[in-house]
């Protein structure tokens, strides 16, 4: 009888172990804007879907998201809810969520947290941090814009002078000036990540002042692209996600954040027992950043060569871009 019980116990343990091995990794992501914003949030959600597909679909990875979390206390509540309801990895995709992660991660030592854009893991063993060297793609876009601008006036629209919105624009300015220091670059900050109407007006103002090339960062730049679309000859340079689909005739290139490599590394590390403690930076060199040329835009070979040279120079370290 004793031997029989032992055998049943072993079979049950094996069944549980098999079941545990087959259980999908549960990942939740909290985002400031919509998964369809054609920018920051979409870049992460797209990467998660891509990783899920590559690693075995829903049987391997279960995904949940909470979007439009502009309000940080609401986001903090969502982070805590996910952590306490059995999720293995909770991603807080926004630099405004840092203090929430710092506070909540301590209460859930078995849950992996990831947040960005920043490099601070707060010394916690279950927190990963990530950021993007947005200035690198900004520099490449700046080189292209400087080569293509005929009016020698370029407009930049941004939300608030913080985070990758600022570093992208700083890199863009360096790229333009590396080609032609006489080009006038005007910057407009709307004070909002979400005010599409004001971002549109900002772009229209640049165009009215003579700019024939525009760029910008944040979820609201779709308004700027819309403004440029109505004006023949005005070009757009995108960042965060591939924005060519919004206006194929005027988007020259986009810096794309590709979080897939980082996400796969976090999954591998977690599987190996390392729940956090690493900071990632997407760069052109590690392929976390990519410059996607718009195939629908006929880019002159010499201009593309200049862009490629900038990518190569930054990757090899011969071109230094200050964030």
């Amino acid at each position: 009888m004793k031997g029989k019980s032992k055998l049943i116990g072993l079979v049950l343990a094996a069944l549980v172990a098999t079941g545990a091995a087959a259980a999908p990794v549960k990942i939740a992501v909290i985002m400031p804007s919509a998964t369809t914003d054609a920018a920051f949030s979409q870049s992460m959600w797209g990467a998660l879907l891509s990783v899920q597909k590559e690693l075995g679909g829903e049987a391997a990875i279960s995904l949940k998201y909470t979007e439009n979390m502009w309000n940080v206390p609401d986001a903090a509540a969502a982070i805590r809810d996910y952590a306490s309801s059995g999720f293995d990895i909770v991603i807080a995709h926004g630099s405004q969520y840092g203090s929430s992660i710092q506070e909540i991660a301590k209460d859930f030592p078995k849950v992996t947290f990831a947040w960005g854009t920043d490099v601070n893991t707060y010394g916690l063993p279950n927190v990963y941090a990530y950021t993007a060297a947005a200035e690198q793609g900004g520099y490449v876009n700046g080189v292209l814009a400087a080569k293509l601008s005929k009016s020698k006036k370029i407009g930049v629209t941004g939300p608030i002078e913080v985070g990758d919105a600022k570093t992208y624009i700083d890199g863009f300015v360096q790229g333009v000036q590396s080609v032609d220091k006489t080009i006038v670059i005007s910057k407009t900050w709307t004070g909002s990540f979400s005010d599409v109407a004001l971002m549109t007006a900002a772009a229209q103002t640049h165009i009215a002042s003579g700019a024939d090339a525009l760029t910008g960062s944040s979820q609201s730049v779709v308004g700027s692209i819309g403004a440029a679309k109505g004006k023949g000859g005005v070009l757009w340079f995108g960042t965060q996600a591939d924005q060519a689909g919004l206006a194929p005739e005027l988007v020259v290139a986009s810096q794309v954040y590709d979080w897939t490599g980082m996400l796969k590394d976090i999954l591998a590390k977690r599987k190996a027992g390392k729940l956090g403690g690493v900071a990632y930076t997407l760069t052109l060199d590690n392929a976390g950043l990519k410059v996607a040329y718009n195939p629908a835009y006929k880019l002159a070979a010499a201009v593309k060569a200049a862009g490629d040279a900038a990518i190569s120079g930054i990757s090899k370290g011969t071109i230094k871009v200050n964030p």
């Binding site: 804007s33 919509a34 979007e67 439009n68 599409v196 109407a197 549109t200 609201s220 819309g226 919004l246």
Partner: peptide
Amino acid sequence: SLSIAQLNLFQDNLTAGQ
């Protein structure tokens, strides 16, 4: 007037409190 005359697109919370 926002979605089909000025901005010609739609995005979440397009009005931004207008």
